[in-house]
């Protein structure tokens, strides 16, 4: 039992830092950049993706012995798309304000390379409980990167965290101004570039 539980732990913890989907595997960058203007949207996106990849890996792994080889990609896409539609419907029903800001990016989880990638490379060859943990780990690793980028962007670009003003009035009065650049597209690219650099250098 000890053997399989350490394997389980490793499956879960590996993608958090060591094998992080965004910085090391280079997957899932698309949506990572657009929704990181605010911590709130980054959080919802991270949670949605984690749930989708965990459950799609679970379902696909459970079906792995009966999925016909020749339609395997389409089956994976169908499962993933259905889960994403479910997530989108739930968000629009219960988290309306955030859904307006996330707009099309929830739907784009379908094309997020992480979900497809984990289904193809892990879920098809591993038992369901490990597939679930792997999906969970990758989702959390993705979420961690998202939150880090959003933290920097929201703090420097708007002086807020989760919508709450953090930079005190006094600092503004002394001449400090929000770095508007942080709210724009290029900033996200550059921040991730630096994060990757730091992470890779630390690995050496």
């Amino acid at each position: 039992m000890a053997g399989s539980s350490t394997k389980a732990m490793k499956t879960l913890s590996d993608p958090l830092v060591e094998n992080n989907p965004i910085s090391i595997q280079m997957l899932g960058i698309c949506s990572a950049l657009a929704v990181t203007v605010q911590l709130k949207t980054a959080l919802v996106m991270g949670i949605s993706l984690t749930l989708v990849v965990a459950f799609s890996s679970l379902i696909i792994s459970s079906m792995r012995t009966i999925i016909p080889r020749n339609i395997r990609i389409i089956v994976e896409l169908t499962v993933i798309a259905s889960l994403v539609i479910l997530a989108d419907e739930l968000i629009r029903a219960f988290l309306f304000d955030i859904s307006k800001q996330l707009s099309v990016f929830v739907g784009l989880i379908i094309t997020n390379c992480i979900v497809m990638g984990r289904a193809e490379t892990f879920a098809l060859n591993n038992p369901p409980h490990l597939a679930f943990l792997d999906g969970l780990g990758n989702g959390l690793g993705y979420g961690a990167v998202l939150l880090s980028v959003a933290f920097i962007r929201e703090l420097l670009g708007a002086g807020k965290l989760f919508g709450i003003q953090v930079v005190p009035e006094a600092v503004y009065a002394a001449g400090y101004e929000n770095m508007g650049f942080m709210l724009l597209a290029p900033a996200a690219f550059i921040i991730i570039g630096f994060m990757v650099w730091i992470q890779k250098s630390l690995r050496q």
């Binding site: 290029p186 996200a188 550059i190 570039g193 650099w197």
Partner: peptide
């Protein structure tokens, strides 16, 4: 550490 991926990101920015 910057080679490849990291540099691509910064150039894209």
């Amino acid at each position: 550490g910057l080679r490849g991926y990291g540099l691509t990101m910064i150039v894209t920015g």
